[in-house]
């Protein structure tokens, strides 16, 4: 079953085409990696799926984009799309609230009031991202004081607390040390038992370690996609081969 399906999807910022006729699908209950040189449109692709790209000035798009069979761009309430499709961004940034309230920002809005349930969510989500032990004694401190890597994990906890069905991650490990990266990779692998995980990464080893499928993008187009092992060992397209051997990007 495919969680996300795009066909002939194109997107623009103003007049500039960023995504060019993209047709891809992300399989449910699996990890898909997106790789490609800087500026090729990876972030824009993810932000088109959770419909946050349209928050940018002069964004427009055309084509087919379905999440679990529903046309995303025909849904009136963007909030429901954004709740269903969680996203962790490139910049490690905490909401200007306490650590605890960062995690609870989504759940509180979505109507969870019960204290015990809220406590549970905080602990559960922070444990999942391996942050609980570091912050359990200072949950009420301002989250802005956390380190970059801690903020990145907090961002993930914040998204998990909303219980998305699709999880998009934009270079989530770029400011993490190897140990936390390992923990996050484990987490993603276990999350992928229930949901569709899509990860943008510049670390090709990471793609190899965790992704079932890999997708190579260049200049707004998807050049090649397929099972990770096949793509790495035997790319069909010349450009993919060049990228993997370090010639592009």
């Amino acid at each position: 079953m495919n969680a996300v399906e795009m066909s002939n999807f194109s997107a623009w910022y103003g007049r500039k085409a960023i995504l060019d006729n993209i047709s891809i699908s992300f399989v449910n209950r699996s990890i898909t990696a997106i790789v490609g040189p800087s500026g090729c449109g990876k972030t824009t692709l993810l932000r088109s799926i959770n419909r946050t790209a349209e928050m940018e000035y002069a964004f427009s798009c055309r084509g087919d984009l379905q999440v679990f069979g529903k046309q995303v761009y025909q849904i009136k309430e963007v909030d429901t799309v954004r709740k269903q499709v969680g996203m962790v961004y490139q910049i490690p940034l905490a909401l200007p609230l306490s650590i605890r309230e960062n995690v609870l920002f989504g759940p509180r809005y979505h109507g969870i009031r019960e204290q015990s349930r809220l406590d549970y969510i905080v602990e559960d989500c922070l444990r999942k991202v391996a942050l609980w032990d570091e912050v359990k004694d200072r949950q009420c401190d301002a989250a802005g004081r956390l380190s970059g890597g801690q903020k990145q994990r907090l961002a993930m906890a914040r998204v998990l607390a909303v219980e998305p069905q699709v999880l998009l991650l934009d270079e989530p490990c770029s400011s993490l040390d190897p140990a936390s990266t390992g923990l996050i990779e484990e987490l993603l692998t276990s999350l992928a038992e229930d949901l569709c995980v899509v990860i943008v990464t510049h670390n090709l080893f990471q793609a190899r370690r965790i992704a079932r499928q890999t997708l190579f993008m260049l200049d707004g187009s998807v050049i090649e996609t397929g099972p990770t092992d096949a793509l790495f060992s035997n790319p069909l397209d010349e450009r993919t081969r060049a990228f993997f051997s370090g010639l592009i990007g």
């Binding site: 959770n50 909030d79 429901t80 799309v81 969680g86 200007p96 961002a155």
Partner: peptide
Amino acid sequence: VDNNYRLLACSLGVSELYALRRIILPR
């Protein structure tokens, strides 16, 4: 106010007005 706060908050599926009240206005 840093635009990324709007992005982060709205990505959690809250309405823009809620994000405004809880994050942007206090800031």
